[in-house]
Amino acid sequence: MKDDLIFIAQRWDIEFKHAAGETASTFFKAIMQRREILGRLCPKCKRVLLPPRSFCERCFVETSEWVKVGGEGKIQSFTIVYEKFEGLPPPPYAIAYVLLDGASTAMVNFVKGLDLNNLDQAIKKIKIGAKVKVAFKRKREGRITDFWYELV
C-alpha cells in the first residue's frame, strides 16, 4: 500500500490566558499610561532587569524597586527577516535587542522606520552599537508591541 495512505488532519488550537503577574502588569501599565519603560533593580547584584522580573535568578532574591530607564539605547544584536514564517508578520522586518540607558539587560523589539527592501543599504544603517530611541503606539493596549525602536 504505497500510494493509498490515509492522512488525518488535526489542529492544536488551545487558547491561553497567561497571567502576566503583578510585576509585568506594572511594566505594561507604565507604558500604557505614562509612556515609561520600567526595569526592576536587584538589591544584591544591582542589575536593572529589563524585561522586569520579580526576582533575580542569579542572586535568588526578590527584586526590590522600580527604575525608570532611558528612552534611548544601543543595539546589542539584530536581524532582518526576509522569510515568511507561518504565524509571524509578513517580511521584511527587523528585530533587535537593545540595551536602554540605565538598564543592565537588553530587551527585544521591532526596529521600524527603515527601508529593508535592500539588505546592503539597510545594514549600513542598522548595526550593533547603533543608537535607537523608543517609540510608542498611539493606542496602547498592554502588549510588548505597544512600543518599538527607531534609529536616531
Binding site: A19, A20, G21, E22, A24, S54, F55, F60
Partner: peptide, 16 residues
C-alpha cells in the same frame, strides 16, 4: 487561583 503571579514567580516562591 494564582492570577497575581506569573508562572515563573510561582516556581520561585516554592523553590525559595
Amino acid at each position: 487561583n494564582k492570577k497575581h503571579q506569573s508562572i515563573d514567580e510561582l516556581v520561585f516562591e516554592a523553590t525559595k
